[in-house]
């Protein structure tokens, strides 16, 4: 029907359909309003062209009821669209608890992904269909943006912080992956494909990738190599907080405040340890700013998070 000309992007994620429903509803509304206004203007232009015999009596240059009506009507419609869009948007904030977390790193000019099992991909991302996938994004240099049109998701990767995007692929296939935020000379070359595959095929694919070190294992190695374990380990001489189970827990600070140990807190504590000091400890930790790059940061964070998961899922980790 479309002669090979694309009119709509594929709908390949769990949210694509609901975003499109809003899009097409809004499209219908705006098209209707646009056509109505255009027709009105053309109708007036023809009817009241100079010299026409149209009735021009009773003209008025303002009408308060009319103005109030369209102002209020516009406001109400605007609020409905706003609420709808915002409600869908807030889903971004609440990823499912059971999710596969993949680390994505943007650098000029490629995307590098690491699966939990340590499998590494450049400009390609394989994900299972029907399972929630969280891509935690970081950037080595400038701002990039992870964009998969078929999934209707986009998120900037900002240097100096970790951002997240999640989706559930719903249709197996190969979809375009772009960098949407202009990032320098080869911006348009930065991207590739996301391949959504049935879970069994995904597992098989993972198996064929060769068993590299897992992200967590790399992080653990780094934890030792950087000397972190010297203080934070069990047999340390210096008193430092034990990091077992730290992720997601509240941490009491020495200024009587409490923060949740999330990605931001852990990152800041590594790069800028003096900023938020855990209550009861001396601020003796040196900053690792400049010593760990973004890729290594992702390994460390993965390791620290794994310390929380281990108690509950020990059997799985051993397996």
């Amino acid at each position: 029907m479309s002669f090979g000309i694309p009119f709509t992007p594929p709908e390949a994620s769990s949210i694509a359909g609901s975003v499109d429903l809003l899009f097409y509803t809004l499209l219908a509304f705006t098209a209707l309003l646009g056509v109505f206004l255009t027709s009105l203007v053309i109708f007036y232009a023809v009817k009241y062209r100079a010299g026409s015999s149209a009735d021009r009596t009773g003209e008025r240059a303002r009408s308060l009821p009319l103005e109030v009506t369209w102002t209020v009507a516009s406001l109400l419609i605007a609020f409905v669209i706003f609420g709808w869009g915002a409600a869908l948007f807030m889903r971004r904030e609440h990823p499912p608890l059971e999710a596969l977390e993949i680390a994505g790193l943007g650098k000029q000019w490629m995307w590098e992904f690491r699966h939990p099992g340590g499998q590494r991909e450049i400009n390609e991302l394989h994900v299972p269909v029907g399972k929630a996938v969280i891509v935690s994004l970081a950037s080595q240099d400038v701002i990039h943006s992870f964009f998969v049109p078929a999934f209707r998701v986009k998120q900037d990767a900002v240097p100096g912080r970790t951002t997240h995007v999640w989706f559930i692929a719903s249709e197996p296939g190969r979809y375009r992956l772009f960098c949407a935020q202009y990032c320098g000379t080869q911006h348009s070359e930065m991207g590739g494909f996301v391949t959504a595959m049935p879970p069994e095929a995904y597992a098989a694919w993972l198996g064929n990738q060769g068993q590299g070190e897992t992200l967590v294992a790399d992080g653990e190695k780094l934890f030792g190599a950087l000397g972190c374990s010297g203080c934070h380990g069990n047999s340390s001489k210096v008193r430092a907080p034990d990091l077992t189970g730290i992720f997601g827990r509240p941490v009491a600070l020495d200024n009587q405040q409490t923060v949740i140990a999330d990605d931001r807190y852990l990152r800041d504590s590594i790069l800028n340890p003096k900023k938020e000091i855990a209550a009861g400890y001396e601020p003796v930790m040196p900053s690792f700013d400049g010593l760990v790059d973004e890729g290594e940061m992702q390994m460390l964070l993965a390791y620290l998070k794994s310390l929380s998961a281990r108690d509950t899922t020990k059997s799985e980790a051993i397996h």
Binding site: L22, F23, L26, F82, G85, R92, R152, K154, A180
Partner: peptide, 15 residues
Amino acid sequence: LFLAALAIDVHVHDT
């Protein structure tokens, strides 16, 4: 209006 609507903007932003 499409761009102001959050969920749509996520898709069409920077396009």
